[in-house]
Design a binder for these strands. Structure first.
Lengths: 109, 109
DNA sequence: TTAACATATGAAGAGTTGTTCATACGGGAA
DNA sequence: TTCCCGTATGAACAACTCTTCATATGTTAA
């Protein structure tokens, strides 16, 4: 059982979490992650579907993969990306759920 | 009931979520938020407790407040900050829980 | 009023980052 | 082999951000 107000993370844990959040904290990158969160998507499909350059999507995917957010699978000429594991999906789904709630976060106030 | 793989956010919602994550995606700022997540803390107490400059903490708190992550209450000379609402606490606690799980996110792979 | 304390703010610089362009790599088809 | 398609990579630049320093604002006490 975990007491609610026990939020002490070590400096390293805090830094790691901050890194994760920073990587997700870009609109292009976040849309890429969401675009392949529950289904595999090729680089080209992501680029076309999001209206982004193929080069840009590839650059972002490299960082996302290096951070462990996304994993790749090659099939012929194409490379398919999706969430790296169930943790990533869970975290993102939770975040989305919170954002979609009434009086969501990130208000202009 | 929400189907699991329905993660379509509008462009605005995606941008808003990315903004929130970007603001949280800095180690200093994240530590400040965690430092006053469940209890009110004065600026000076946060600075001292985290080993950060008072000026830096104040700068970060301004951004955190502008983003709706934190709220302020003045009492005499001091200003006490804490999480803006239950949403923020919930999101952060969820994130921490996920990070603390075995084989957590943000691996070096 | 003056003085001391707590916080906020502005300017400035070093470092980082997102994007674009051009090009290279790699795989499949002919 | 050559050609085309899909993806990755490197360079370069503008834009942004974190931090520090100095100073201003606001509050309480004397």
């Amino acid at each position: 059982m975990l007491k609610k107000n026990d939020v002490r993370l070590t400096a390293d844990e805090t830094a790691a979490l901050a890194d994760l959040l920073r990587v997700l904290g870009d609109a292009s990158r976040l849309s890429i992650v969401l675009g392949c969160l529950d289904d595999e998507q090729s680089v080209g499909a992501l680029a076309a579907g999001l209206g982004l350059t193929q080069s840009l999507v590839s650059h972002h995917l490299r960082l996302l993969r290096a951070t462990g957010i996304v994993k790749a699978r090659r099939q012929g000429k194409q490379v398919f990306y999706t969430a790296a594991d169930v943790h990533v999906r869970s975290v993102l789904h939770d975040l989305i759920a919170h954002v979609l709630e009434p009086k969501g976060l990130g208000g202009t106030a």
